[in-house]
Design a binder for these strands. Structure first.
Lengths: 172, 172
DNA sequence: GATCTAACTACACTTTTGTATAGCCAGGTC
DNA sequence: GACCTGGCTATACAAAAGTGTAGTTAGATC
């Protein structure tokens, strides 16, 4: 039932003694912390590239599609690329950058969690290694090759970490 | 630059021909689609269990803490467990269920993405296999043991999938 | 130069998430 | 039985995120 948390090493063990400033999760959520941004990424993984495609397939208004596509583009997850359909003018479509691609584990982990807990017996889609057809899953592994469970996940301070210099106090 | 999307197999290849009803990602986001819910999970992984701990460490108001802790408890990710400090009354604290634990890859994947793209040279925390001290990362692997990249990720219809019967039309 | 089209903006609004301050309440101890 | 404490609610707002309908725009073709 009540499972063990991660192993908080060293000074981190006393949760009352440190703050979560500079948390990477907080920074990540500033960019992809909403429903619509994550669904746009899903669509990009599926191969959607065009404004109307995103809005229609996700089922969001064009206003939101425009706002979030701009947001993700400015943040560097998507890039605009010109295209030209025969008989049409040149326009821009949206393609994943490496930064956007690298969120795939997040989306797939959410999907598989949903598959497991929020669908009935079977889920609508399967994710496989295309080559072999063998099922794909998201895993936590260490460099030694072991799978890592929460109880054996250590969290420690990075000795190389340097606190970014605070923006110089403007005004006396 | 413009990277290839996943391999959409069979009927899925034509994005215009199908809808994303029943999408597991959508269902997952209905539960953990906000900043505060994901931060509460982070804290639960770190070992926070008490109301005040969640609110203070995350830096959210007690109102939001109460709302989202109730939400996650009702959804089954957290469970209330009575505790008793010496000299205090019995109260309830919040502990992870298996359902909550199983979101660890999502949170860790977001953190590592943030570490890579949103921190400077070094990130504040390290995630390691506690046993060995060896770094941990989130990976996509198939049952054959291979790492899977987006270009080799196949998405296909699940042949066992049955569309849930629509809620019987109440009122003609 | 009128027309078509996909990208995108404008306006008016609702819902959800969130802040800030203050106060309630149950069941322990003193 | 007064008091303390941590979980939790009340009231009043602010700020995002999101809806729905309609209109604008740029550069192709006809």
């Amino acid at each position: 039932m009540g499972s063990m948390p991660a192993v908080m090493e060293g000074l981190l063990a006393d949760l009352g003694s440190w703050k979560t400033d500079h948390c990477s999760l907080v920074k990540a959520l500033e960019i992809v912390g909403t429903r619509s941004t994550l669904l746009i990424l899903r669509e990009a993984y599926y191969g959607t590239t065009r404004f109307t495609g995103f809005a229609q397939r996700i089922g969001i208004t064009e206003r939101i599609a425009a706002r979030q596509l701009r947001h993700l583009t400015e943040a560097g997850l998507l890039a605009k690329r010109p295209y030209r359909d025969e008989g049409g003018r040149t326009r821009d479509e949206y393609v994943l950058t490496d930064m956007g691609r690298d969120l795939l584990p997040v989306i797939l982990a959410l999907m598989q969690w949903g598959d497991k807990y929020l669908q009935g017996e079977h889920s609508p889609l399967l994710y496989v290694e295309h080559d072999t057809g063998s099922p794909v899953h998201v895993e936590l592994r260490s460099d030694t090759g072991n799978k890592v469970e929460l109880e054996n996940l250590g969290v420690r301070l990075n000795p190389d970490w340097r606190r970014p210099k605070p923006a110089a106090d403007v005004g006396d």
